[in-house]
Computed example of a mutant assay.
Amino acid sequence: MRQHGVPTAAGDVIRLDGVTRTYQTGAPPALANVSLAVAAGEALAVLGPSGSGKSTLLNLLAGLDKPTSGQVTVDGVRVDTLSEAASARYRRERIGMVFQFFNLLDDLTVLDNVLLPAQLAGMPSKRAQARATELLSYLRIDRHTRAYPGRLSGGERQRVAVARALMNRPPLLLADEPTGALDTASGHEVRNLLAQLNQDGQTIVLVTHDTTLAEACATRTIELTDGRIRRDTAAVAR
């Protein structure tokens, strides 16, 4: 399946130009003059110790934070210039987000969790239902459509979270420690899923401490230390 929302045009999905983020005057910056380009179809793993700037980078890409200086452009949008309302719209239309602890709504069924982004975006009901059905089948969780998240395994819940993230066909999927709350078997399942999504063309930025996850999923890895990119490495072909 190659029609789950992947941009087909060549070019950079992400461009950071001289991005610095400082939270306190006189304190070391969380990010320091970072420049980075990520092409359509890349899977970028961001590694580094706690406090290295990984979460700050993810928040800037998601429009949840703004740089102190520099420019952040995602899918042609200058994210650093957006108002609060425009940032929310940008996330709804252009960003899919997958979290360590799933962030599913336990009182909604799997189907209703997946449908939620489409409803917020005003997608017609018939089209939204068709899209959700397509994703649940693609991610092999269609048998759980009417189940509630609490009845699923960790790996299954993360698949639901990925389906929700892809619902509005985002050009960019952001994954924040997506295997951090999973057992070994479920973690392996999610690693395979992310690798397959990228092979099908989805652009991914993956923040993780897990080098095994990066090796399995990423086409490229950057390592952050003290807010700076210390290493930028292309992966050996999978």
Rank of each mutant, 00 (worst) to 15 (best):
V6A: 11
A9N: 10
A9Y: 03
A9T: 13
A10D: 14
G11Q: 00
V13A: 02
G18F: 09
V19M: 02
R21W: 05
A27W: 14
A30L: 10
V34H: 06
L36C: 08
A37V: 00
A37F: 00
A40C: 15
G41Y: 00
A43Y: 08
L44T: 02
G48M: 06
S52Y: 06
S52L: 04
T56R: 10
L57C: 08
L57H: 08
L60E: 10
L61F: 11
A62D: 12
L64N: 08
D65G: 11
P67Q: 14
T68E: 09
T68F: 05
S69A: 15
G70L: 11
V74D: 04
G76L: 05
V77K: 07
V79Q: 07
S83H: 07
S83Y: 07
E84N: 15
A86E: 12
R89H: 08
Y90R: 10
Y90V: 01
Y90M: 03
R91P: 11
R91N: 09
E93Y: 00
M97C: 10
F101E: 10
F102N: 13
D106C: 06
L108E: 00
L108M: 02
L111K: 14
D112Y: 09
D112W: 11
V114I: 09
V114F: 09
V114R: 10
L115R: 12
L115A: 13
A121N: 12
S125K: 08
A128H: 02
A130G: 12
R131H: 03
R131Y: 08
T133I: 04
T133R: 11
T133G: 14
L135P: 05
L136Q: 08
R140K: 13
I141C: 05
R143T: 15
R143M: 14
R143K: 12
R143W: 14
T145Y: 07
T145V: 13
R146E: 09
A147C: 04
R151A: 15
L152S: 09
L152W: 06
G154V: 11
G155L: 07
E156S: 01
R157Q: 06
Q158M: 01
Q158G: 00
R159D: 02
A161H: 02
A163S: 06
R164M: 01
A165G: 03
A165R: 04
L166E: 02
L166V: 07
M167D: 05
R169K: 09
P170M: 01
L172V: 08
L173T: 00
L174C: 05
A175W: 05
D176L: 01
D176E: 05
G180F: 00
G180H: 01
G180R: 02
G180K: 00
A181Q: 04
T184V: 08
V190H: 07
Q196V: 06
Q196W: 05
Q196N: 04
N198V: 06
N198S: 11
G201S: 04
G201M: 02
Q202E: 05
Q202W: 02
T203V: 05
L206N: 01
D210A: 03
T212L: 03
L213Y: 03
A214H: 12
A216I: 09
A216Y: 12
C217V: 15
A218K: 07
R220C: 08
R220G: 04
T221F: 04
T221L: 06
E223D: 10
L224V: 12
R230Q: 11
R231I: 02
D232N: 09
D232E: 01
T233K: 15
A235D: 10
A237G: 15
R238P: 15
